[in-house]
Amino acid sequence: MPPLSQTLAPPRPVDGLELDELCTFIGRKQRKVWLWLALCRRTRQVVAYALGCRGRRTARKLWRRLPS
């Protein structure tokens, strides 16, 4: 499977991003994981994602994964 960055539609200068987060459990309720998403408003494509806690470290991980 190709990397996510190679499957994206070409960006336009007016494109904006929407960020969202979802909480899920892995195996049992004590193992909570947050899925952070960055979506292009125009195309609704997922342009970046990160899995982790709901803290700064995961937010930074998502930020670093955003395409330029």
Rank of each mutant, 00 (worst) to 15 (best):
R42N: 03
G55K: 13
G55Q: 13
A48D: 08
R57C: 03
Y49W: 15
R57T: 12
L35V: 15
L37P: 05
L39E: 08
R44M: 12
R57D: 11
R31F: 04
I26L: 12
R44G: 02
C23D: 06
R56M: 05
V33S: 03
C53L: 07
Y49A: 13
V33Q: 12
R42H: 11
K32C: 05
L35P: 02
T24Y: 02
R28G: 10
A50Q: 06
A48R: 10
W34N: 03
V46S: 01
A50H: 04
L37E: 08
L22N: 03
C23I: 01
L37Y: 09
A48E: 10
Q45A: 12
K29L: 11
A59H: 06
L22E: 04
L22P: 00
W34M: 03
V46A: 14
T43S: 15
F25V: 13
L39Q: 10
C40S: 09
V46C: 15
W36F: 15
A59F: 13
F25M: 09
R54W: 06
W36D: 01
T58R: 01
T24S: 14
A48F: 06
T24E: 06
R31P: 00
R56T: 11
C53D: 11
C23G: 14
G52A: 07
W36H: 14
C40K: 06
V47E: 00
L51N: 08
I26Y: 00
R56V: 08
Q45I: 08
G27P: 07
G52W: 10
C23W: 12
V47H: 00
Y49T: 09
T24P: 00
Q30C: 01
R54D: 03
T43H: 11
K32I: 10
Y49C: 13
A50N: 05
R42K: 08
R41H: 08
G55R: 13
T43N: 07
R31W: 08
A59W: 09
R44C: 13
L51T: 06
L22T: 08
C40F: 01
G27T: 07
A50I: 01
C23H: 07
R56P: 05
Q30L: 02
R44V: 02
A48K: 04
L35I: 15
L51I: 11
K32P: 00
R54Y: 03
Q30H: 11
R31S: 07
I26D: 00
C40Y: 01
V47K: 02
R44K: 15
R41W: 07
A59E: 03
L51H: 08
L35W: 05
R56L: 12
L39H: 06
L35A: 11
R28H: 14
T58M: 04
I26N: 00
I26W: 04
R31T: 04
A50G: 01
R57E: 15
T58N: 01
T58W: 04
L51D: 04
R28M: 04
R28F: 10
A38R: 04
C23A: 12
Q45M: 14
C40H: 06
I26H: 00
F25K: 05
C53G: 13
L39G: 00
R28C: 12
T24M: 13
L51Y: 15
I26E: 10
R57I: 05
G27W: 09
R31C: 02
T43A: 10
L22K: 08
G27F: 06
C40G: 10
W34C: 05
C40M: 03
L51P: 05
A59V: 12
Y49R: 12
C23Y: 08
R44N: 15
A38F: 05
A38P: 04
